[in-house]
Simulated assay, not measured.
Amino acid sequence: MSSRTPPRAIEILMVEDNPGDVRLTREAFKEGKVRNELHVAEDGVAALDFLYRRAPYQQAPRPDLILLDLNLPKKDGREVLETIKSDPSLKTIPVVILTTSQAEEDVIRAYHLNANCYVTKPVDFEQFMRIVQTIEEFWLSVVTLPPRSGS
């Protein structure tokens, strides 16, 4: 292992209700260079329960990065993003919007709500894998993430 390998796995929370996208993302991260732990919340309510360590997520780690779909059951990704970015204990966690929506109003609103970046999911398998690997390379290798604070 190189000396650049972090001593601990990077904790990633993926908020996604499409099992196929979860599977592809998991595969793309497995092929990556950075040790990571991918946690999945299938809806917006579960995502907030994970972040606030409510049952059944009392032992959940604080994520270093959140991959957030916008179109989710129970509580939509826009509401989840707004909650995260308005909470002083969560707002420093980078949030990458990873969604099928190409709607200009979704892009504008996501950035208005302080998303860290907006990525449109490609439908092609190879492109999807490349996008996830690019997210990994940038967010987990290039960027300095904020330290995990108490919470």
Rank of each mutant, 00 (worst) to 15 (best):
V123D: 07
I97D: 00
P7M: 09
R53G: 01
E105C: 03
P7Q: 12
A110Y: 05
T83S: 12
R62P: 00
M129E: 05
E104T: 12
T83C: 04
E11C: 05
P94A: 14
R35A: 13
I135R: 06
L72M: 06
P19N: 07
Y52F: 14
R8S: 09
D49K: 08
E82I: 02
D76T: 01
R8T: 05
N18D: 13
L90R: 02
Y52M: 11
T120D: 01
L72K: 08
K33G: 04
A115I: 02
V96I: 13
S149H: 09
F50M: 04
M1A: 13
P7S: 09
K74M: 12
T99G: 11
E11T: 06
V80H: 04
N114A: 12
A55R: 01
R54C: 01
P88Y: 03
I12L: 11
P94V: 10
S89L: 10
R35M: 09
L24F: 15
W139Y: 10
S149E: 12
P88E: 10
I97W: 11
R130Q: 13
P122K: 12
P146A: 09
Q58L: 07
A60C: 09
I97V: 15
K74N: 15
E82A: 14
P146T: 06
F128H: 13
L51T: 09
L68Q: 09
L70D: 02
Y52S: 04
N116W: 00
